Amino acid sequence: MSHDAFELARGLAREAEAVCRYYLSNGKRAGRYWVVGDVHNTPGRSMFVRLQESRKGPAGKWTDAATGEHGDLLDIIRESLGLRHFREVAKEARRFLKLPRTELESASKPERLAVPTGSQQAARRLLAVSGPIEGTVVEAYLQRRGIARIHHGGNLRFHPRCYYRPDESLPTESWPAMIAPVTDLDGRITGVHRTWLDPDGFDRVRLGKAPIDTPRRAMGDLLGNAVRFGVVDDVLAAGEGIETMLSLRCVLPTMPMAAALSANHLSAMLLPPGLRRLYIARDADAAGDAVQAVLIQRATDAGIEAIPLSPRLGDFNEDLHIFGFDALRAALRLQLVPEDVVRFLHSSMAVVE
C-alpha cells in the first residue's frame, strides 16, 4: 500500500462508523461492527466492518462471509460508488475527510469519472448510497411543513452528506438531503431529485431547507417522468412539487400520485395507459393555469377525464400547513367525484387513524 493510501486508510479508520453510515447506509451497527449485505451497500447481514481497533485487527477492516472478500475502507468507497481508479477513490476519501487536495490533484485536470455527473447512472448511484428517512432531518423537515403522515411508500430517501456545488468556480459543499427517485411509466429510475436541508434547525423563511441559493435540484432524464407515490390503476393525481403531493397523500393515502417537479414537466408528463381519471393538483399561479389548460386538453384527447384540484392558498402544502388536516379534507371532499370520495376519502380513514 502506498504512503498516500496508508494515510487515507488510517484517517478513514478513525471515522469508521461515519464512513459506514455514509457509504453503507443500508446497514446498521451491531456491537463493534457495521453489518450490511455487501460492499455495494446491498441490504443484508453478510458483511461485517470492524468499527474499533481490537486484538482481532484494526478499525475499518471488513469481511464478506458470503464471498470471502475482505478489504479496508478505501475498498468500500471504491466499490460502493463504482469508481475505477485510485485517484478517484483518494479524491473522494479526501473530500469525505475534508482534507486539502494533493499538489498532483490541484495541478492536473480531473479524470472523467466512470459515471458522468448528472446522468441516470449518477442518479442511481446516489439512490444506492441513500438510506431511509425515518428518524432523520428529512422526516423532521416534512413534519414541520405540516406533513405529519408521510405516506411515501419508500420512495423518499435520506443522504447525510449530499454534494452541492453552487457553480464551477466555487468549492463543493455537502448538506443533508431528501432524495427522491424519478421514474418512467415502467418504474425504471431515470433521475433523482434532491432537496438540501438545514441540519441545525428550522428557518421560517426557508422552511427547513439549507441556506444555499438553489436548495432543490434534479438530475437525469426528467421529461415525461415523475416522482411517484403508489401504483397507478385507473385514477391518478398529478402536481408539481413533492411536498404538494405528500400533503394530498396525508388525506388521500391510497390514491396514486405523481410529482413532476416543475410546471413545464407537469404539462409534459406522460399519462399511464389505462388511466380513466386524472386529478390535476394545480398551483394557484399563472403557470398553474397554463399547466391545467394543457393537461386537460391532453387528457381529453386521450379519452381521460381531467379534474382540477385547486388550493385555497398558493399550493396544497400551504393549505395543509395553515389550515390543517381537517380543513384540507373538507375542501377535497367538494372537489373529488362522488365515487372517489367513497373510494379514497372514506376508505382512507382506516389508514390515517
Rank of each mutant, 00 (worst) to 15 (best):
G224M: 11
E243N: 03
D203Q: 12
S247I: 08
R216G: 11
W175D: 02
A218I: 04
R217I: 11
F202P: 03
I150Y: 07
Y164D: 02
I189P: 02
R157E: 07
V251F: 06
R188G: 15
I147P: 08
I133A: 14
D198R: 03
D221G: 02
T190C: 04
A148M: 05
G153W: 11
L170T: 11
A210H: 05
A237N: 11
I147S: 12
W175N: 13
K209P: 06
R206F: 00
Y141C: 08
R144T: 06
N225R: 12
S174C: 10
I242Y: 10
L222W: 01
R206V: 00
E139D: 03
K209T: 06
Y164V: 00
S174W: 10
E240R: 14
G191P: 09
A148S: 14
G187T: 14
D186C: 15
L185V: 03
F229Y: 12
P166G: 03
G191I: 09
V227G: 14
V231R: 14
V138C: 04
L246D: 11
Y163C: 08
Y141F: 15
R188V: 05
I150G: 08
V232A: 14
T214C: 13
V192E: 00
R206T: 00
A210R: 07
I179N: 01
G201V: 06
G135T: 07
C162G: 12
M178W: 04
R149G: 09
A238N: 06
T172L: 12
G241F: 01
G146M: 02
R228Y: 07
D221Y: 06
R194T: 08
H193K: 10
T214F: 08
A140T: 07
R217Q: 07
W196I: 01
G224L: 12
I189G: 06
I150S: 12
